[in-house]
Computed example of a mutant assay.
Amino acid sequence: MNCMKATLLIGTLLVSASTLAIDKTAAGAVAGAAIGAATGKSVKSTVGGAVVGAGTGAMFKSGDKGKAARKGGAVGAVVGAGAAAITGKSVLKGAAVGAGAGGLVGEATH
């Protein structure tokens, strides 16, 4: 199992390096999904990784779309952390997923 995780992690790094030419949001989603699949044990971790990766990629864009994604990410992080605290889940994980989702929403609404 550890060998498979290491192989997936190395593969993720290779894929993320080769996807620099494509859109940063899509590249982040691919890299995040691969890392989520490698470190987690469920589809939920893969989807969560994709959301966080895509949101992070969107926030690294320059211009108005990147600025909107960063603002959305900041609001999403606060909302995600608050929701996680209320439900008794990991606040850090809630903030990360909230920031990813907020970044995507910020980019999409701009």
Score class of each variant (00 low, 15 high):
Val47Trp: 03
Lys61Cys: 05
Gly28Phe: 11
Gly102Gln: 01
Ala84Trp: 03
Ala83Arg: 06
Glu107Arg: 07
Val47His: 02
Val52Cys: 07
Ala37Arg: 15
Ala6Phe: 15
Glu107His: 05
Gly57Trp: 02
His110Glu: 05
Leu104Val: 05
Ser90Tyr: 05
Ile86Ser: 01
Gly57Thr: 07
Ala68Thr: 01
Ala33Gly: 03
Leu92Lys: 15
Ala21Asn: 04
Gly82Leu: 07
Val47Ser: 02
Ile86Gly: 02
Gly103Gln: 08
Leu9Glu: 10
Gly53Tyr: 02
Asn2Cys: 06
Lys93Glu: 03
Lys65Glu: 09
Val105Phe: 04
Ala68Lys: 09
Ala29Tyr: 00
Gly106Ile: 10
Gly32Tyr: 13
Asp64Gly: 02
Gly94Tyr: 00
Leu20Ser: 14
Ala74Ile: 06
Ala26Trp: 02
Leu14Met: 11
Ala6Asn: 15
Thr56Ala: 11
Lys71Leu: 02
Ala21Leu: 05
Ala50Lys: 07
Gly49Asp: 15
Ala50Tyr: 03
Val30Asn: 13
Lys5Glu: 15
Thr39Pro: 14
Thr56Pro: 08
Lys61Glu: 08
Ala50Gly: 11
Gly106Met: 08
Gly76Pro: 12
Lys65Ala: 05
Thr25Gly: 06
Gly32Glu: 12
Leu20Cys: 09
Gly55His: 07
Cys3Arg: 07
Val91Ile: 07
Asp64Ile: 06
Gly98Asn: 03
Ser18Thr: 12
Met59Ser: 04
Gly72Thr: 02
Lys24Cys: 10
Thr56Lys: 08
Gly57Leu: 03
Lys5Arg: 13
Gly98Glu: 00
Ala99Val: 07
Thr19Ala: 12
Ala81His: 07
Ala38Asn: 11
Gly73Cys: 01
Gly63Phe: 14
Ala81Glu: 04
Cys3Ala: 08
Gly72Ser: 06
Gly55Arg: 04
Ala29Leu: 01
Gly103Asp: 13
Leu104Ala: 04
Ser42Trp: 10
Ile35Trp: 05
Ile35Leu: 12
